[in-house]
Design a binder for these strands. Sequence first.
DNA 1: GTCTATACAAGGATAGAC
DNA 2: GTCTATCCTTGTATAGAC
Lengths: 227, 227
Amino acid sequence: MAKVDNISEQEGGAIRRRNERAILAAAERVFARHGYRGASLQEIAEQAGLPKSNVLYYMGSKRKLYVRLLERMMERWNAMLDDISPEDDPAEVLSAFIRSKMQISRRHPEGSRLFASEILGGAPFLQEYLSGELRDWVQSRAAVFREWADRGLMDPVDPIWLIFLIWSSTQHYADFEAQVLGITGRDALSDEDLEKITEFLTRVVIKGCGVRHPAPRAEDPATLTER
Amino acid sequence: MAKVDNISEQEGGAIRRRNERAILAAAERVFARHGYRGASLQEIAEQAGLPKSNVLYYMGSKRKLYVRLLERMMERWNAMLDDISPEDDPAEVLSAFIRSKMQISRRHPEGSRLFASEILGGAPFLQEYLSGELRDWVQSRAAVFREWADRGLMDPVDPIWLIFLIWSSTQHYADFEAQVLGITGRDALSDEDLEKITEFLTRVVIKGCGVRHPAPRAEDPATLTER
DNA sequence: GTCTATACAAGGATAGAC
DNA sequence: GTCTATCCTTGTATAGAC
């Protein structure tokens, strides 16, 4: 089983890794643009600079390739889903939440559109993820938001609708990029634009939900030294 | 040229209108779900209860059918785009704006998803509409919002980002319906849910943008009689 | 006016040459 | 390990039977 004619053998050779990366990048673009059915292996292969059958050789099938891309996007997503507790400062948490969502949209617009396309089509591949893992995540954050509201740190808004508000308003700049650019008349949004938008959304959400700073607690040394 | 064997002859017979309606309804669903390329005339025909070639017979081509659906959605859209002036009450205008957007999402979810799919794919058919007609519309509303800010009726937020915020957060319930249902664990959102969401979004936007009621003007009789 | 039959390209996937 | 040739299905579109 040992093959000595290939130096970097871990997880397939270096050429394999390079080709796989090229295929994944191209496939993300094409799937994002045309959806699962509308995307063709032909186009993916062309954009990856490989013959059509190599895509299948490396990825097995169109379906496997698509699922792999979805999973990769979910991982990026999860990497930013830090835990929060009722002890945290609501304004800081919401601000960080909005900022990280904007950064994902900025860094992975095709991934965001791929996900959007999947949901738009009724989420045939992601249904159990949505009603399982993601639902649990949302419910746990919602519980924290509710406790903040109970403690008077923010208005008693429904946390679920708040989370959807943040998701939709941030993803919009990746998913509806074509519309944003058409209406603003630009080639692309600059980093400064995105900073401005982030500040705008943060401001509206925090002010709109009546978020207040928590009173510093005497029993918390960290809070005391900071002031 | 006169044909007397058909009673309701205006714009084609009654059967024709019925078939066209069935095709348009089916096509909207299928295009919304799979995108332009991913949609097949086969599936559209099946859902319309007609043989495949009748779809082409009535609509000419896949492309024409798609364009016709987009135009129909733009018309529904335009029907709700009432004019506003700097004299209007900002809170009322924003509230009505959010409400009408939510109603379109509610009444035409497939149309909303069709539009979303078109934008997601880079808006190949709608580019000039976005950077022309729609851009002008947005700029004119933005001017009104700016004047409100200048007159101290709301915070000086960028009107363009505000419009995108309203669009994205309302459309989300049509476009990402699969996600919303998965996370909330329901079959469908009720009218009461949508009323709650509308109130929530209105509240956050108005409060978040610091919208204030305009001072009643002495020279305006209508305002005086109302108080 | 409406549907069946068919043309012809493009799709995903596999077998086998290199 | 990589690419060419090929199979079979499905797609859009049209011609012609009913």
